[in-house]
């Protein structure tokens, strides 16, 4: 199988190197396009005025925080079952990026909350479950680095990630299940998005841009981690030095 071949660092490393410029270029282009459309072209909101523009960072960052966690948990399950070393490389490379997006979502949300709601922070179900997600990321990173044996570290980390998956539906449905100060879902609704297309377009471009950014950074981090782990291996010495 072709996938199995690329699960070996020997083949993954050059493949990632080939893909990287494409993802990187596309990420820069979409981020520039999304930010330009969001900050300069999109109209102000009828209620929030210019403050609505925080959403173009906040919402895609919050989506990424959950998307990256889902990716990590999926890789953790695959790693536990098929014992593929590369999944651990992927998970550890993703963790810091996911944590950063979570922090970005929390901070931008806080900046929006003060003028709009009248509070930097409230303990409602949406905000609290997103904060728990940040702690899951931080908990995973500290657990993984606290165990010296790499195989035991990846096993323990994978189990923690799989337990934490429960938090993802809680974050998504928190605004429906309970009374929250956070507004209900605007985009992923059965009856269609509740955002005017002039505001929705830059939002979706930013969402794609953040995904491309994530892929680029995760490839860079995976490559450097492979260099670190495989420093003594033959294929690497033949290729590089």
């Amino acid at each position: 199988m072709i996938f199995q071949k690329y699960a070996a660092p020997k083949y993954f490393y050059p493949l990632a190197g080939k893909c990287l410029p494409w993802f990187g270029t596309l990420a820069i282009l979409t981020i520039c396009a999304g930010l330009y459309l969001g900050l300069f072209v999109a109209p102000p909101d009828y209620q929030q005025g210019e403050t609505v523009r925080i959403m173009f960072i906040h919402v895609p960052a919050a989506w990424m925080s959950m998307f990256i966690y889902a990716m990590m948990a999926g890789a953790a399950a695959i790693g536990l079952v098929w014992k593929i070393k590369l999944t651990d490389t992927f998970i550890t490379a993703s963790a810091a990026i996911g944590a950063s997006f979570t922090l970005l979502a929390l901070l931008t949300g806080s900046l929006w909350g003060k003028p709009m709601w009248g509070a930097w922070w409230v303990w409602d179900a949406r905000l609290t479950s997103e904060l728990i997600l940040l702690f899951l990321y931080l908990g995973f990173m500290s657990l993984h680095s606290a165990i010296d044996d790499p195989r035991r570290a990846s096993r323990a980390g994978a189990i923690l990630l799989l337990i934490g998956v429960i938090n993802l539906p809680v974050i998504h449905y928190s605004v429906e299940w309970w009374n929250t100060l956070h507004q209900p879902t605007s985009v992923a609704r059965i009856d269609g998005p509740r955002i005017h297309s002039s505001i929705l377009t830059p939002l979706l471009i930013m969402a794609v841009a953040f995904k491309l950014f994530y892929v680029s950074v995760v490839l860079i981090r995976m490559r450097s981690s492979i260099l670190d782990n495989e420093a003594d291996s033959r294929w690497l010495q033949e290729q590089g030095a």
């Binding site: 909101d45 929030q48 409230v122 605007s186 955002i195």
Partner: peptide, 10 residues
């Protein structure tokens, strides 16, 4: 605290 709804438009 003001609660915002899910509608965004110009």
């Amino acid at each position: 605290l003001a609660k915002h709804d899910e509608n965004y438009m110009p």
